[in-house]
Amino acid sequence: MAETEPYAPRTVAPSGLPLLIAEAFDRGRVTGLRHAVAAYAEASGLAGQRLEDFVLAVNELITNAVRHGGGQGWLRLWREDHTVRCEVSDSGGGIAASQLGDRDRPPPNTTGGRGLWLARQLSDDMVVNTDATGTTIQISTAVGDPTG
């Protein structure tokens, strides 16, 4: 990432809620950022399989931002009521409508194309905003048992 042109988030962080993480990232920060997300999500009340699923979903989003979204991105993580939320933004060329509309599991013989599908499967909710100037994806997972 260029020092003279810092990456700026595409959206405004939620007002009034303390952010646990608000960080620009590139390829060199993916692993460290994944560990930070895991630690903060666990401290926010996620545990067990829900924690593992959430961290994997976030990892898919940040990896996609690096691979397909211009090589860098911006991550924000916060807790809102009984929900942990993560937003990942990039400045890539956007996601094709055909990819967004396809909710089916990618065939096993295809290379790639599983990141968005996995993130959707592993989180309670996913909202995607995308256009030719970039993409912002927000995922959320309820803290505790969502059925109880």
Results as ranks from 00 to 15, higher is better:
R85A: 15
D102N: 10
L116G: 01
A119G: 07
F54P: 02
L46M: 11
L61N: 08
D125R: 03
Q99N: 15
I62N: 09
A97V: 02
E87D: 12
T133M: 12
D124Q: 08
R50D: 13
A36Q: 06
T136D: 14
R50L: 04
N64C: 13
R114S: 03
S89C: 07
S44L: 02
A57D: 09
G32L: 05
E80Q: 11
S91Y: 11
L33C: 12
G48P: 07
D102K: 07
D81V: 06
N64D: 11
G93H: 04
M126W: 02
L77Q: 08
L116K: 00
D124M: 03
A47M: 01
A38L: 04
V58L: 10
Q72F: 04
E80C: 07
R76G: 15
H35K: 14
G134P: 01
E60T: 01
L77A: 14
W74R: 02
A96I: 01
A57H: 00
Q72M: 10
T130S: 13
A119H: 05
E42M: 07
Q49S: 14
A132Q: 01
I62G: 13
E52W: 05
D81W: 08
T133Q: 15
L122A: 11
D90Y: 02
F54H: 15
E60Q: 10
R50A: 12
Q99H: 10
A119R: 01
S44R: 00
H35C: 07
Q49D: 15
N64A: 14
G134Q: 02
V66L: 12
S89Y: 06
I95N: 07
V84G: 14
V84W: 08
T133E: 14
T83K: 09
L100V: 02
T130I: 03
N59L: 10
F54V: 08
D90P: 00
D104H: 07
A65N: 04
A119L: 07
V127N: 06
E60A: 14
E80R: 09
L77S: 15
G94Y: 02
T136I: 06
H35G: 10
W74Q: 06
Y40E: 15
R67N: 15
L56R: 03
D104Y: 05
G70V: 03
W78M: 08
G71I: 00
